[in-house]
Design a protein around this nucleic acid. Sequence first.
DNA 1: CGGCCCACATAAAACGTTTCAAGAGCACGC
DNA 2: GCGTGCTCTTGAAACGTTTTATGTGGGCCG
Lengths: 355, 355
Amino acid sequence: MAGVSPATVSNVLTGRRVRAESAQRVKEAASSLGYAVDRAASQLRSGRARVVAMLVPSLENPFFTSIVAAVERRLRTDDHDLVVASAADDVATEHSRLQALLSWRPAGMIVIPCTDDFAGASLLAAAGTPYVVLDRVGGAHSADTVAVDNVTAGLEAARHLIDLGHRRLLIVASARTLSNIKLRCKGIVEACAAAGLEEPALIEVGFDLESAVDRLQTWLSTHERPSGIIALTNFATLGALASLARFSVSIPGEVSLVGFDDYAWMRAAAPSITAIRQPVEAMAELVWDRLRARIDGDSSPVVQAMLPVSLVIRASTARCQTGDPAAGLPGQGLRRPSRTGGRQREQGTGRGAKA
Amino acid sequence: MAGVSPATVSNVLTGRRVRAESAQRVKEAASSLGYAVDRAASQLRSGRARVVAMLVPSLENPFFTSIVAAVERRLRTDDHDLVVASAADDVATEHSRLQALLSWRPAGMIVIPCTDDFAGASLLAAAGTPYVVLDRVGGAHSADTVAVDNVTAGLEAARHLIDLGHRRLLIVASARTLSNIKLRCKGIVEACAAAGLEEPALIEVGFDLESAVDRLQTWLSTHERPSGIIALTNFATLGALASLARFSVSIPGEVSLVGFDDYAWMRAAAPSITAIRQPVEAMAELVWDRLRARIDGDSSPVVQAMLPVSLVIRASTARCQTGDPAAGLPGQGLRRPSRTGGRQREQGTGRGAKA
DNA sequence: CGGCCCACATAAAACGTTTCAAGAGCACGC
DNA sequence: GCGTGCTCTTGAAACGTTTTATGTGGGCCG
């Protein structure tokens, strides 16, 4: 020690009332020794952890990582640290990761569940850890939730296409069991009903690109081609793009496409992609606000927050080209000659050859 | 307690020699009580932390998050947890985040530094925390490093284009101060020299898409158009795509493009993108192997590992169309009529209008 | 039968903080 | 002069584990 006292050091470092002179000495000593409080000991004694745990379905999905990044940014300003775990899109893994995270005794937890009925809720309740459920807000949660207005999202996407004259829509979804997907569909169906259209077709493509492309290709070669496609996740958007490219379907000439989530590549793609943008930054802010309030003892009734999305109109949607009745024939796209060298070649090398 | 003894519980839970019967009783009690070891107390007493801290320049860049995801997967199988922090592409933030991470007394640390001379090395050395430097392996590190064979990466990309008959190449880089960028350039220059070509032009576009597009557009409208472009980061790739689209330059008809990092959208884009793929999974595995060895007391000399990349050939590269001398005139692309509705319209709405 | 070793269980100390109650010093007012 | 209140400091207890050393009982060998 340079100066005095073991407990006074703690008082200085936790910002309690200490004479300015001693505080100064302690700080000098600390910095010269390169001393930093041991979080484990600190947390053990005080019972207060400056850690927030976050459990997401996957760290491969840019939507989730962008939320993680935004949350991390928020936490940094409040001097908290972040422990992340990925559930690997698997309920069993989710459960075991949740237990691992709980053993940190985090101050609070942010969860994006794998499925609507978040089984871990009972664990969290038993541990008394405050938590907020994010994005996939399905079952009846007894905790605060933050989500996006999925119905309006679907409604706006569909209305945009309908306004452009599209009548035959296709929904590309990951899995219709997820409530946010269901709600987006609901919005689309509402918009269609309002326009006097029948309910659009829906295809489920799963959570990875390979299966999405496979299923979309078989669907497209066996069904009448839609004039407008709404993809409800970012993988679905990629899958739709890839499959349409394989069939050399021009966008937006033959098919208009509305994607979900707004990423850099959508701006750079040719054509750039019209998409529903989720307010990632606002979601992160809101979720941390709620969680911090709960950590600080707020015991008001749970709140289910819903944030608005925005439709970013780019080049992948255009006025429907009517008067081409042949376009609807099954399998048509496969036989149609492609127009650009790039697309044509893509059919051969699209799966990627290593050099 | 259901059964006996406070210390025996610890023996059971840490897997030491205990009579089978008592072990059974303890486990039952633990699961019925929902008991889980408090990591803070455990770490405090044992001095062993089952935490690995990871410091990355940004969590917005999919290359970094994909590495984080892969590392997390590895750690999970070895029953370790991950604490991440983002340096926000800023050296000062990097330093403060590093200190925050060190207060966890992590078993080890994985660092992707912001700059080549990683100033935090001294902090880590002082704390005695084993660490591995990943990806941006610039200055003389006194720690293990894991990186990619950047020279060969550049060489292969350039050779691919040269083999296709391209003579005028353009390098699009984030910042040439980074050593991995420098090495990639070196490989490209080598390949050009071997083919008797002059050194290709280079343009620095920074770390975000907006600035990349801006700078590329001004460059493209004031210089002779190259026939082949090599983009050295994923943002550079996106920037190149977006700028070429604005000028309605066809890929690969007029310009061939080799990108960096291999993402789902590159497969789905039209045309799909030929790219250098970095072995993210292998990097994560190697970095954890090295770190774990150091944690376990391995004190052999530091090793600088270098992993091979692979060139994934897709549709964005094609044989050079010679015999079009006019193509080289400055600003040409702006006046040329675009061929597809999508690209044409993109010029008007490319920046995205909210609805 | 005694001594020894083995397998297992446990008491108690220790890890590095925070916190609480109590102490020290000082000024003030009666 | 003494009690009172105030500011600042500090000794010691406590947090929940792990670990070390010690204890206990039983089997085996001489």
